[in-house]
Simulated scan of single mutants.
Amino acid sequence: MTILIAVLAILFIVLTFMVVSKTQSILKGLSKSDVEESEYLGAPDRYNSANGVGLFAFWLISIVGIVWSFIAYKKDFLPEASSIHGKETDYWFWVSMVVIMIGFFIVNTFLFLFSFLYRHNKNRKVTFYTHNNNLEIIWTTIPAIVMAGLVFSGLRVWTKITSEAPANAEQIDIMGKQFGWTVRYAGVDDNQFGKYNYKLMDDAGGNPMGVDFSDPNSFDDFANASEMHIPKGKPVLLKIRARDVLHSVFIPHMRVKMDAVPGMPTKFWFVADKSTEDMRAELGKPDFNYEIACTEICGRSHFGMKLLLVVDEPADYEKWKKSQKPLLTENPDLLSKVPDNLKAKAQKYTSTEPVAAEVAPEVVASSVLGNSSKVLK
């Protein structure tokens, strides 16, 4: 690296001296009042023909390089999308790429070809051509129609994936914070999310997502900060939010990307049609895993803000949900956040044992006396 920097520095110095020298010669030429046509600054010199040939040769070499790089690195492209809308997104992406590349090759071919064909020739006379209205209309109308077609086709796909999710969609609450993701699911008992409030967010108290435990629907909600599970073949609605700064939910294999904005909930719904096991078999990689990454630079540890994504078969997904413990079970101290009139309902989630029945006073007295006698002994 040091050698490369030194070489570039030397090259820069040499080119600087060449530019200064050329500038001085131009200034000297401009100071002469009797400059002949052959010495005119804009007159062609002995390098004119070589420049024309060199530019066209550069373009031919560039075409070879472009085609080679596409073929050589195609293996590193993302595999076929693992979601239904992702396949449609990919289709229109490649349509756009083909249209743009056709225009790119046509325009640049003529650009470099003209520099070669119309290089200076003292036996050829220049024709002054002002404009052509028909030509202006053609090269304005055609690109406008093509670009409008691409824009509206993309807008149609975008409108579809940002529309209201189907009624049977699996809803998942995902929140980004520096520097990780936390996921919350509606409990299996009521399948409804409890409310949340940013004022209730408390990492130390075991409530990083600000779940409002005055809402009975939150009692069976459960969360996970290490992985997110979704079912295969069923609509999934991501309810996205951020706790501190701007983040962005990105699932590359699903072609899912949506910003997580503080104070402004966003959403994205999709249908995954390849489970994690399906992708492992398709790619021949038994250790393959989907991931959720943050694609909005959010701070010093942005690079490590990832979350494991597991796509389960529907039956496995339901089994996994039933195996998860509610927030109240994971952290019984949260029971203090439950209003007194709802504590009886919430207590069944705070312990694995049933709530003790009311005990007769004489039994309590007997137990106390028994324990006291043991202590005296």
Results as ranks from 00 to 15, higher is better:
206 G>C: 00
207 N>Q: 04
208 P>H: 06
208 P>I: 11
210 G>Q: 00
211 V>Q: 01
211 V>N: 06
212 D>K: 03
213 F>M: 04
213 F>E: 01
215 D>K: 05
216 P>R: 10
217 N>I: 05
218 S>N: 04
219 F>V: 07
219 F>G: 07
221 D>N: 05
222 F>K: 07
222 F>A: 04
226 S>G: 05
227 E>M: 04
227 E>D: 03
227 E>V: 09
228 M>E: 11
228 M>Y: 04
229 H>W: 10
231 P>E: 13
231 P>Y: 10
232 K>Y: 06
232 K>W: 05
233 G>V: 00
233 G>D: 11
233 G>W: 07
233 G>R: 01
233 G>N: 07
234 K>Q: 15
234 K>C: 09
235 P>W: 12
236 V>N: 13
236 V>G: 10
238 L>M: 11
238 L>I: 07
239 K>R: 11
240 I>A: 04
241 R>Q: 03
243 R>W: 12
245 V>L: 15
245 V>N: 14
246 L>C: 12
247 H>G: 03
247 H>T: 06
248 S>H: 14
249 V>A: 14
250 F>H: 15
252 P>V: 07
253 H>Y: 06
255 R>D: 09
256 V>W: 10
256 V>A: 12
256 V>D: 11
258 M>V: 08
261 V>K: 13
262 P>D: 14
262 P>G: 13
263 G>S: 08
263 G>C: 13
266 T>W: 08
266 T>S: 11
273 D>K: 02
275 S>A: 00
277 E>G: 06
278 D>V: 05
278 D>T: 00
